[in-house]
Amino acid sequence: MYQPLYQQLIEQLGYLSWPLFICAFLGLMIILERLALLLYELPKRDSWLTQLRQQARSATPEQRQQLMTQISQGRSMLAKGTALLLSHGEQSRAMREEIVSLWLVKQKSKLLSGLKILHIIGVITPLLGLLGTVLGLIEMFNQLGLSDGPVTPSQLASGLGLAMNTTAAGLIIAVPAITMAHLFTLWAERRCNKLAHALNLLNLWLDGFDQALSIGTDSAAQLCSKAATCKEASCQSQAAELNKEAELNKTPLTGLSS
């Protein structure tokens, strides 16, 4: 007679079926929710920052208003943080840094939400599997104790099956839960660092530092070119000073000629 899948699992896992089902369901929901957030925070949603870096214009009131209009429809964390920063653009830089710092703490807790529960699930489910192993062995020994005849494989099958199935189920739930919890934690920390870096550059940009948005984005060739340009400009400046000094030395002192 055909039995539904959940009834087969209940028979194979015994008393620990529902605790393992609940852990598996919670872990799956947390992983799916974190994956949705990860896809929602893809870098392509913040393409406006790349365009702003290419413009490299000063933070005039018109530029601020244009940027506010551009990111008003954005729902990514960077867009919201930028909107918060621009809304307090009249404050001092230290005050803006404090506001952004408090906002980043809240966003980090949002990125890490649910991951502690995922860690707990990864720790509990192997213990539930071990408990199922112990219960399966107890059941097997009880059946052997009630039997007066020789031990048959059928007497061992049910107890050993319960012991092995619960252990396997616990590990099957624990390994993805722990792995995904660590991966999501690494992603959350990296995302928070990128948010802090971008908002600090925008904060400098609001203070009138035009090249702030290009910090950390220049290639090696661009850096060498800028260094050569600066060196050339320095050499030209020194040469101009020497020429000026030489001209002063050649000029006759009219006051002493008479």
Rank of each mutant, 00 (worst) to 15 (best):
G114H: 00
L248M: 07
E90R: 11
W187V: 05
Q7W: 10
L39Q: 14
K116H: 13
L201G: 06
Y40R: 15
T217W: 08
I120Q: 14
L78C: 02
L86S: 02
A83Y: 09
T69W: 08
L195G: 00
E90H: 14
L52G: 02
A239T: 01
I215C: 04
T166Q: 03
G89I: 00
Q54T: 12
C235Y: 15
A56N: 12
A36W: 05
Q7T: 09
A181H: 02
L130T: 03
L112G: 04
A59G: 09
I120G: 10
A79P: 00
A157L: 06
Y40L: 13
L78H: 01
A188Y: 01
T229Q: 13
A83W: 10
S58R: 12
T82H: 00
Q3F: 13
L130C: 00
L253F: 09
T50V: 15
A239P: 00
K226C: 03
V100R: 07
Q211H: 14
A163H: 01
P19L: 04
L253Y: 08
Q8C: 07
L199R: 00
M29S: 11
T125V: 06
L131A: 08
L156K: 03
Q222N: 05
A188H: 02
L137W: 05
L28P: 10
M95N: 09
T179N: 08
T167N: 12
Q211L: 14
K80H: 14
L20F: 07
S72Q: 04
M29T: 12
R190H: 05
T152Q: 13
N165R: 04
A246V: 05
R57C: 10
E232W: 14
Q155V: 11
L242R: 02
S237L: 07
T217F: 11
L171S: 03
I31F: 13
